[in-house]
Design a protein around this nucleic acid. Sequence first.
DNA 1: AATATAAGGTGTATTTTTTACACTAAGGAA
DNA 2: TTCCTTAGTGTAAAAAATACACCTTATATT
Lengths: 231, 231
Amino acid sequence: MENLPAHFDSLFTVDCIIFGFDEGELKILLIERNEEPFKGWFALPGYFVEKTEAIESAAQRILYESTGLKGIYMEQFYTFGALGRHPQGRVITVAYYAMIRLTGQKDVKPVSDFARQAVWVNVKDIPELAFDHSRIFRKGFEKIRNKISYQPIAFELLQEKFTLTQLQNLYEVILNKKLDKRNFRKKMLSYDILKELDEKQKGVSYRAAKLYKFDKRKFAKNFHKELSFSK
Amino acid sequence: MENLPAHFDSLFTVDCIIFGFDEGELKILLIERNEEPFKGWFALPGYFVEKTEAIESAAQRILYESTGLKGIYMEQFYTFGALGRHPQGRVITVAYYAMIRLTGQKDVKPVSDFARQAVWVNVKDIPELAFDHSRIFRKGFEKIRNKISYQPIAFELLQEKFTLTQLQNLYEVILNKKLDKRNFRKKMLSYDILKELDEKQKGVSYRAAKLYKFDKRKFAKNFHKELSFSK
DNA sequence: AATATAAGGTGTATTTTTTACACTAAGGAA
DNA sequence: TTCCTTAGTGTAAAAAATACACCTTATATT
């Protein structure tokens, strides 16, 4: 890097909003910081990006360190670089979100030294976070709320097999409003991206619902984002 | 920055896609590089972000140095940080786009030492660019193409007063397809964000069209992005 | 003055999409 | 057997999107 202007040196990090859906609640993973600054505060999982590491790889690494999961799709949504955002100097952060399946085992393995603990927190109960992470969270949450309205990204939060009611509940939690059951089903099925299974829900004390799967292949074939002006 | 890990030092830049609309063509501003690497290549206007400069400020500065314009709205759309993107080392770039009015004076003032010249190039004729700028351009162009379909951002490219035909032409160039005149007008006017002026086009050798203005106030009142599931 | 040229400006019928809305069916628990 | 809880379903009305063609107006040309 000999020819580059050394006086522009700066640091940058990746921060992740990791969404999970559990018992009808949309949650994100927060860590309690174990080092200064903001020791004892809650924060988004994130860390410095290594010199020889692509940003995406760093995001994947942080996801792995926080949840033990690999190969999850993550989407970069914004880069925050206000001057005062880090009390010790200029640190820019690239923010990603991920949506993961909390497959029963929602126990989060202890992350690293810098975190005392990691906890799932309902998006409705997020406390004030370290640095500008509250702002990052709000922006990311807004992003998925928009995105879910025109792209079926919600499936990643559900178990592989799910009922339409579960899917609808998830939409309702993300959009923060009640949806009409018949209209929701009609519309969702009209996308033709679900595969109806020969299987039913088990262990419920009422009529069991049909199970569905998200069908990636159908999705790829049928889902072309419609633009407003078609002619 | 004493406590921060110095071995993570990295550099970052801002790159800008500056869109302009001129004589029915959508163009972006490119510079011809006057220094290595990629000396002689065309590239997006961009430069290193100073240590004491917010990212947005850097984007504004680069826009100013490229066009002489200040206070133009710019939108950050992605951050590129692949390992090999800069031949001399790890350089991350935050990409912005801006849409500007080419008010007759489309002469671009010589930028800085690092650029030999700056030119407006039709988006259909963009050559292979330095670094990963071709990729950045494609992503940014795709972004505005999507965005224009649900947010009226196109006005920024037109003169303050414009005809509906001019507006339609702009949409057609960005979306790369023909639109129906009657449907376009119906829809655009139904948004109720335009102010019809008591004025007509001048200097044309055919029937002069009514002029319109974009009405920011109406826009703020009437434009709430509609989501797919309203109930 | 008449004519040619070029774009401006307008309405309606059809189709598609969205919305509102309520009852019966199924399964397990008591 | 009854009760409780959720599953599952259809239709009519409204709104939005689409397809489509002709007359009007201003200027330039003869």
